[in-house]
Write a protein that binds this DNA or RNA. Structure first.
Lengths: 225, 225
DNA sequence: GAGACATTTGGAACATGTTCCAATTTTTGA
DNA sequence: TCAAAAATTGGAACATGTTCCAAATGTCTC
């Protein structure tokens, strides 16, 4: 009996097996039928389990979809590889990294988003698992603090609150996108513009110049051809 | 037969009567039972109409809720009465005006928001009627352009895009609030901070000073006691 | 007033998310 | 090996949003 037997017992292992089969079934169904026909009964049938099993393992349809979302999207691990010259550019590289998912597979992620917005129950756990959320926030805060260290962002403005603002802005744009008010083509530039504006509101003179250039570039891209 | 008889016929009048009875019933139900028990069958019973009538008149439950929302909330008409010294302060006064609804009646509006987020159908008409949306946007744009005229915001940055950014930010924060990630107590300051950051990203040096003060004030309010 | 028209009505129906239950299978611990 | 514990299973049930239908009710035009 090993020391880590507690979470590797046959029972837990089978549970994990079923769990991932359900997530995979949900993902494949969204990929294939895009939005329509994503019912718990179908997911269960596809995963080869009973209808009640997903409820035992996840609790609700929303939780299943959330698991699909988090299974697909873990870009934070790639943050360390960003190599842009200054911290502000690294922030926008990270932003590109995050957006790429949505832009390259819009139908899939739009469906996911819309499903996550359905919070008729009283749980409403937000758009990510608490742990995942905290990891993401910490990664973004690190980027912001690097920009402060490089003298591009004002130290007087809390990196925590700034991160919160950027995140709210991103979610607002994603919401507009999920509802069809923002096209996939302009999604990336739209959020980049918002990031640049908010960051410039917290920038030192040195950072402000860099960000102004980016703002104007985004603007050209959105208004010009 | 009067000149405006076309839309005042007995038939249309009765329709409008039923329409407003349904909206009123939905509003009262949300007010009384807060979130739970807002079903089409209940709305219909309360309004004294058949279950199919709301579908004839509005099309979906979401459309009924949207009608409740717009019936309650038309703050734009009060914009003209804002009398703050400079255009930037007027923007924040307008923001306060908009937020007051949510802060003074959080349960009601949270329920409304959550219902509007449910877009399982393929219509997904956004968070407001197109006409209403355009009116709101125009009002905000006017405020932003006034700030440009007063030399507080940079003319090089499009008021249209800036408005879009502010609106996305507000929606993102409202989303977090509707999902419980942001408390009602901090909702106003949270959105104000985001507005101040984004606006400062588009400000002239004169405007920048005003906004920096506001940013620090918001920050104190959010972090301090 | 009479017929043509438009709407509402009641009711049933469907697919959905979710919960409950007793019966069954699988895993665990001695 | 065997009994106890834990989980899945099948099935039914409930409330929901939504749609369909024939019958009834109202309104308009002549």
């Amino acid at each position: 009996m090993t020391e880590a037997a507690a979470d590797t017992g046959r029972r837990e292992q089978a549970k994990g097996e079923r769990r991932s089969r359900i997530v995979r079934a949900a993902r494949d169904l969204i990929r294939e039928t895009g939005d329509t026909d994503l019912s718990m009964r179908m997911i269960a049938k596809r995963a080869g389990v009973s209808l009640t099993t997903p409820y035992n393992l996840f609790g609700s349809k929303r939780a299943v979809v959330l698991a699909v979302f988090e299974d697909e999207r873990d870009f934070v691990v790639r943050f360390s590889r960003l190599r842009a010259a200054n911290a502000l550019d690294r922030i926008f590289d990270a932003h590109d990294l995050a957006m790429r998912y949505f832009i390259e597979d819009p139908d899939f992620y739009r469906t996911l988003w819309k499903a996550l917005l359905n919070t008729q129950g009283q749980d409403s756990t937000g758009l990510a698992t608490p742990e995942r959320l905290e990891r993401n926030r910490a990664a973004w805060r690190a980027l912001l603090e690097a920009a402060q260290d490089e003298g591009l962002l004002d130290r007087a403005i809390s990196s925590d609150l700034l991160e919160r603002s950027l995140s709210s802005f991103a979610n607002g744009t994603m919401l507009a996108w999920a509802m069809g008010a923002v096209s996939t083509a302009t999604l990336g530039t739209n959020t980049a513009l918002g990031y640049a504006l908010a960051l410039r509101g917290a920038a030192t003179p040195a950072g402000s110049a860099i960000l102004q250039a980016r703002i104007l570039r985004c603007q050209d891209h959105l208004t010009g051809s």
